[in-house]
C-alpha cells in the first residue's frame, strides 16, 4: 500500500517535471520538427512537381503513407488547392 502511494507520487512528480521542462519550448521544437517534415514531404512528392529524384522508386512507396498529411502540407505552403494533377485532395 505504502509502496504504491510512493509510486503514484513519483509518477505525479515526474509528470509535473516533464511538463515544466517541455511546456515552455513545445512550440519552438514542434515548429522545427514541422519544418523538417515539410522538407521531407517535398522530397517525397518532388518527382510529381518536375524535380528529378533518383530515389523515386522508394519515395513512391511512401506516398500513400504520407497522403494523410498532404492536404495540410500544401495549404501550409500557400497553395489553396492541390498542386498536383493526379492527386486531388480538395
Amino acid at each position: 500500500m505504502k509502496l504504491n502511494s510512493i509510486k503514484a507520487w513519483l509518477r505525479q512528480a515526474s509528470f509535473y517535471a516533464e511538463e515544466a521542462y517541455n511546456a515552455p519550448y513545445r512550440s519552438a521544437i514542434a515548429r522545427a520538427k514541422r519544418e523538417q517534415d515539410d522538407l521531407f514531404m517535398l522530397l517525397i512528392f518532388s518527382e510529381m512537381m518536375g524535380v528529378p529524384n533518383p530515389a523515386s522508386y522508394y519515395t513512391l512507396e511512401l506516398q500513400p503513407v504520407l497522403m494523410e498529411r498532404f492536404h495540410d502540407w500544401h495549404t501550409r505552403m500557400g497553395m489553396e488547392h492541390s498542386p498536383l494533377d493526379n492527386i486531388k485532395c480538395c
Binding site: 509535473y16 511538463e19 515544466a20 511546456a23 515552455p24 513545445r26 512550440s27 514542434a30 515548429r31
Partner: peptide, 20 residues
Amino acid sequence: DGIDYVPTNKYILWGHHFTS
C-alpha cells in the same frame, strides 16, 4: 494545434509564466 495552442494545466502555466 499541438504547437502553439496547447491547453496547459494552470500550475504548470503559472510556473512557466513566472519563471519567464
